[in-house]
Amino acid sequence: MNGAFPDADPVIRTRRLSKRFGRRQAVREVDLTVPRGAVFGFLGPNGSGKTTTIRMLLGLATPTSGTISLLGEPMPQAALRVLPRVGALVEGPAFYPYLSGRANLVRLDAADRTSDPRTRARRVEEALERVGLARAARLAVHAYSLGMKQRLGIAGALAAERELLVLDEPTNGLDPQGTREVRHLVASLAGAGLTVFVSSHLLSEVEQVCTHAAVMSNGRLVAQGTLDELRGTAAGRVVVHTRDTEAAGRVLARLGLSPMPDGTGTVRATTGPHTPPPEDIVSALVTSGVGVRGFSVEGTSLEERFVQLTGEGFDIA
């Protein structure tokens, strides 16, 4: 499943990871594999269990069952050894409002016993610059806008040498310009060799930067792989316009498709992995004497695939 990164040593691997809150099953038997160097989009509608999974990955919550390996070590047992190499943004940024942006980052860095106090000021400064907050660094955080706080959160994740970034909805609250900048930032970090695990309920937000994605729905992992793999398994459709709907249906059925005539001169059929190529379908129709007035193949965008997988809708379980 790892596509471009057939790495035997994934950065994140979970096995049958589950979390229950009382009677509510927030995460069910999730087997997640994030290869090294990937930009991994973790998708799913609201309440599908993304943040809960991330909390377990980072040792904030204990799994009800299942195992987690983060950078090759078991979590939460190895948290103190692993987390210095992981930058995280979980469920939105959070800071001391009366401290400046810079002071907040310095405080967090001081909390990490493995961080070097001699380089602290420089690392914090560089991280602030990277997210475009250098000028606002001395302002108290209560005077920050939501987008500025979000950037500060990302700066916090970047303030030390990291191997993995876990970003939970990093573009939440950002303006389009900010969203674009975060996308560029993620791309440039990935270019520098980091693995980035980024959650979102908006596919469009991650589609352009991700190499891999996984889709959560109702606590389950319903798909994961490279973007091409995800698109590839997606079902498309062939659409035949003809007066001869019955004959067309018979031909399509012979080719292993399940035709659905709609009674208005159109036959649709969902394609699968064993569907013959479109040109063969057309020639089969013509040689069988079906009067074809129009023929088209409708591919499935990742967006549609996402909707198929998650059952879409705004009803949150």
Binding site: R55, L58, G59, L60, A79, L80, L83, P84, V86, A88, V90, E91, A94, L108, D109, A111, D112, R113, G156
Partner: peptide, 8 residues
């Protein structure tokens, strides 16, 4: 959560 993932 940020202190604990710092980690402390």
């Amino acid at each position: 959560r940020y202190l604990l993932t710092a980690p402390v």
